[in-house]
Amino acid sequence: MDDGWFPEEPPTLATTVSVETSRSVVTRNQSPDIPFDQSLNPYRGCEHGCIYCYARPSHAYVGLSPGLDFETRLFAKPDAPALLEKELARPGYRCSPLALGANTDPYQPIEREWRITRQVLEVLQRARHPVTITTKSALIERDLDILSEMAAAGLANVQVSITTLDKTLALKLEPRASAPHRRLLAVARLAAAGVPVKVMIAPIIPWLTDSEMERIVEKAAEHAAVSAGYILLRLPREVESLFAEWLTAHYPLKAAHTLSLVTLAHGGRIYDPGFGRRQVGSGDYAALLARRFRLALKRHDLTEEPPGLVSDLFTPPGQRQLALF
């Protein structure tokens, strides 16, 4: 279960995990700039501790802080596999790719013990239901047996998020996620098992990580990724003050310029929530990033999207025997 930090040690914090119960676990959206319309999050909160995480404000909805509480007071959904199976068996259910990791990482460290993501994948595998996964963790390698079989049928692809190749920066920025080189190794191992992998440069942080764009695309190609994408830093709600405080503490000489470029790329605001702009920005700086990215993709023969997933193999739970006749 090596996360690639030896002999360095990522910062540790005492975490508590509570059980969260709900009547359903599938979340649906109609956002025009999100490439999926349904998602499932096995956990609330994320132990990785990425300071820039846009999901942090969601912890305020349960009366906890988007700061340390988001990283240390976690919620697991052990009934998610059963609830998902019930949802898939519902009359009139329309099959489309289910996204794991849309809000928090499905392979954060507590997954080693709880194994909820693994159980969700087993449900999807039995139902031959397409799935796309986004993660910063090498723990995904544990489930290569399921993912390789599903990918062979066009039912699975994976996005591995890589923010920086600099281990020193990564240890400060995303302290309990797998080390950058370890994520690249996971990309190679997924690809070798036949799983299409997209490397996401997410987020690109102006004046801090933006110079690494071309190098990350190059590394993605070297490790057999089929596609790559990027997301510009997003600072909604409480994330703005959290990130600004972190930036001032760790990179005081870069803080003002970084936040200035973020504002410039979001139309004069620290965050622009508009569809089509919130993930890639607007204006000259954003246009320069887009041009650099397109040239890097062309240079390394990568696409912007992995191969599409199929939905016509879906067999609702409880109907497998009927499908034989």
Rank of each mutant, 00 (worst) to 15 (best):
L40H: 00
S39E: 06
Q38L: 08
P42W: 10
P35M: 10
C46K: 10
S39Q: 05
N29A: 08
E47Y: 12
N29P: 00
D33M: 04
Q30W: 04
T27V: 10
N29H: 08
C46Q: 11
C53V: 04
P32T: 06
T27P: 00
P42C: 13
H48Y: 07
E47D: 12
Y54I: 01
S31P: 00
C46G: 11
F36A: 10
G45S: 15
F36L: 04
R28H: 13
Q38S: 05
Y52R: 07
G49V: 11
Y52I: 06
E47M: 14
S39T: 05
S39F: 03
D37R: 14
Q30H: 08
N41F: 01
G49S: 12
G45M: 15
P32M: 12
Q30V: 02
P42E: 08
E47S: 14
P42H: 06
N41E: 14
F36H: 11
Y54E: 02
D33T: 01
P35I: 01
Q38P: 00
C53P: 01
D33E: 04
C50K: 05
F36M: 04
S39Y: 05
N41D: 08
Y52V: 03
N29L: 12
L40S: 04
Q38R: 07
Y52T: 03
Q30Y: 02
Y43W: 12
C50A: 11
C53Q: 06
C50L: 07
N41S: 14
V26H: 02
I51W: 10
D37P: 00
C53H: 07
D33A: 05
L40D: 03
E47K: 15
P35D: 15
H48T: 04
G49Y: 12
I51Q: 09
F36G: 01
C46D: 11
L40P: 00
S31H: 09
Y43N: 11
Q30M: 02
Y52P: 00
Q30F: 05
Q30G: 02
R44A: 15
I34W: 14
Y52M: 12
Y52D: 03
N41L: 03
S31L: 10
P35N: 13
T27A: 12
C46M: 12
C46A: 12
Y43H: 09
D37E: 10
G49A: 15
D33G: 02
Y43V: 08
V26T: 09
T27F: 08
E47I: 01
N29K: 05
N29Y: 02
H48Q: 07
D33Q: 09
P35C: 09
Y52C: 05
Q38Y: 00
G49H: 15
G49F: 13
N41W: 04
R44K: 14
D37K: 11
V26G: 04
P32C: 07
C53N: 06
E47T: 08
E47H: 15
F36P: 00
V26L: 13
S39N: 05
D37S: 13
G49I: 08
C50M: 10
D33R: 04
F36Y: 15
Y52F: 15
I34P: 00
L40K: 03
V26E: 04
P32F: 07
Y43S: 13
F36K: 01
S31R: 06
Y43A: 13
S39C: 04
H48E: 09
P35A: 13
G45W: 14
H48K: 10
I34R: 10
Y54K: 02
S31G: 01
D33V: 01
